[in-house]
């Protein structure tokens, strides 16, 4: 890709030095999409990036349009000389790894699994599940082969905002569970990565009241837990379709009705043979004004939500609303938008 000239014009990436990007947000706001786009953006310029998911939903495979991911790193896509790999982390598998690595107990582990013991242990002590999942991310961040880092960056499609601080703050989660021993040790290791400048926790939001509220609460909670807050990714952004003066008038129901009627006639819509020939002009203008008013109300609400987001004083990145949904091609587009704004 002849990307160098475009690269010259780009601002420096905002997250130099960050190797673990955790992407959270309210459910359905686009965490998986943003994590995928961010992974592609980080991979351009010849880097190796690992994209991991932790909720067993195979969201990454769906997004990249591939077969379900096993518990094994798979190459997903190429991006400007770099590569994105994918991994679906599973707590049971991670525990089996762990038993094997430290105790050489894989066979006993399999027996336990048949009994449902692993499910049991991770259920009755939910902190343990989180240590196993975050532990895998930590391991990937630190992994080296022949002295060199295997991945330049790891992106995690993480649990939603309501659970994120608890999920990452594994130390306090296992505090009641283990004061010493292997779980405790693992938790300390995880904290050394996630509560350090190696990590940035990004939040995805829409310009709607509930997602923005969750974002503000999430930032506060992360900060209180000493976890590094990254950027705010504003997803599904739509540009206003009316100019500012018309927006103001539309909101108050004061659009120039005569001018609209003239316009409809000039475009040949209301005349004979026009699409609106069978509709009374007044009625058509009524509907158009009412719809414009709905639009203006929405734009105003979005502006208010954006102001709230700005008060958080974090870097923000906009991702456009894509009317046809997000396929792999669209994901590259979103990645490019992120790079242009300095997110990667």
């Amino acid at each position: 890709m002849p990307a160098t000239s475009a690269d010259d014009a780009r601002p420096d990436p905002d997250w130099e030095g960050v190797r673990l990007h955790v992407v959270t947000g309210k459910g359905g706001t686009g965490k998986t999409v943003v994590a995928g786009a961010l992974a592609l953006a980080l991979a351009s310029a010849g880097r190796r990036v690992l994209l991991i998911e932790v909720e067993g939903r195979q969201g990454i495979a769906q997004l990249f349009d591939t077969a379900p991911l096993p518990y094994e790193e798979r190459r997903l896509a190429a991006a400007g000389g770099g590569e994105v790999f994918g991994l679906a982390v599973d707590a049971e598998e991670a525990l089996m790894d762990y038993l094997e690595m430290f105790y050489n107990l894989r066979r006993a582990g399999s027996a336990l699994r048949r009994l449902g013991a692993i499910d049991f242990a991770t259920t009755i002590a939910p902190g343990m599940r989180d240590v196993l999942l975050t532990g895998k991310a930590k391991e990937a961040v630190r992994r080296r082969r022949e002295g060199r880092l295997v991945y330049d960056a790891v992106v995690m499609d993480a649990p939603p905002t309501g659970r994120i601080a608890k999920f990452l703050n594994v130390n306090s989660e296992v505090a009641g569970l283990a004061k010493v021993g292997p779980i405790r040790h693992q938790a300390d290791d995880v904290m050394a990565v996630v509560a350090s400048p190696l990590t940035a926790v990004h939040l995805v939001t829409l310009l709607e009241p509930m997602p923005v509220q969750e974002t503000c609460d999430g930032v506060a909670e992360l900060q209180a837990a000493g976890l590094p807050v990254g950027g705010v990714f504003v997803n599904m952004v739509r540009a206003p379709l009316l100019r500012a003066t018309d927006l103001r008038k539309a909101e108050k129901g004061r659009l120039d009705r005569a001018a609209i009627a003239d316009g409809l006639a000039a475009a040949g819509l209301t005349g004979p043979g026009g699409a609106l020939a069978q509709v009374a002009v007044d009625d058509a203008v009524d509907v158009l004004c009412a719809q414009a008013s709905d639009h203006a109300v929405r734009v105003a609400l979005e502006a208010a939500e954006r102001a709230t987001v700005m008060e958080l004083d974090r870097p923000t990145y906009d991702l456009p609303w894509l009317p046809d949904g997000v396929d792999l091609g669209a994901l590259y587009e979103l990645a490019e938008a992120l790079r242009a704004q300095g997110a990667a």
Binding site: I260, G263, A266, L288, A292
Partner: peptide, 18 residues
Amino acid sequence: LQRLGAAYRTTAGVLRVH
């Protein structure tokens, strides 16, 4: 309408909303 000039900008806008 956009091509026809500034007088029709409001109508063009409400049509795009539609």
